[in-house]
Amino acid sequence: MMGGRFANMLQAPSIVMLFLWMVVPLSMTIYFSTIRFNLLYPERTGFIGASNYEFFLTDPAFLPAALNTLLLVGSVLVVTVTLGLALALLVNHRFPGRGIVRVMLISPFFIMPTVNALLWKNMFMNPVYGLFAVVSGAAGLEPVDWLADFPLGSIIVMISWQWTPFAFLIFMTSLQSQGQEQLEAAEIDGASGWQKAIYLTLPHLGRSIAVVIMIQTIFHLSVFAEIFVTTGGGPGFDSTNLAFLIFSQALLQFDAGVASAGGVIAIILANIVAIFLIRLVGKSLMVR
């Protein structure tokens, strides 16, 4: 059918644009990663094979950065899914002021990451004037310098604060669509609250949990702004993730070759995670 073929062509612009957006920079990155390319020394050029990769992989920061990346994604996922679920269950009944409670609970999701990070860094985690220090001082405890002593943990707190509302929002919507008849039937059969939660509610939420995990992983693999405006990756490499490590190679040390090698490695790692994710989640997204 002619109409069908023409209609099919309508997806071409999107596909071509995305293909260009992906392939052009990607092939340039791969090319840069095999040449000598430092923005400070433009006269040094030439093919150098895998030495940029060797340099990046043997950088003492690489292993911590890779581990931090995974730790960050994993911790944020655990915290946000657990808290989001708890909050969604908590507001899943009628009570006075429910609308306002819901608006307050989702607000952090709209805060931009740079504001989020600076807010926590200064007004809450500052070791002298921050609210945490003031409260722990009032309780007679030593104040903690959160960003110096627990840099990655602090960043996990910031990101979790922002993304718990996202998980909450999706779980809440999903809970509202759960059939009441089933729950009532279970109750008549003598099921306890926990039994209902584990055998009926959790399976019902399966698909939304999959959505939350997939979208959040995509965003958290490349966390950047929160680190950029708070710790700058430090102290040492304690809060450096791969995205930030590559950024510091590229724009702070001007070594585009090594940064590109790092970029290729980050892409490979992200694709390994993506394959797992799509196996795990892709199916449940495609099912009607």
């Binding site: 992906m22 590229a250 694709n271 993506a274």
Partner: peptide, 23 residues
């Protein structure tokens, strides 16, 4: 195609920062 499109989101932005900046 849909899964491929989504997979472009998995491409870490930082991996293509250098070329996009130069372009």
């Amino acid at each position: 195609i849909l899964l491929w499109m989504l997979s472009t989101k998995m491409l870490p932005a930082v991996g293509v920062l250098m070329p996009v900046y130069l372009l």
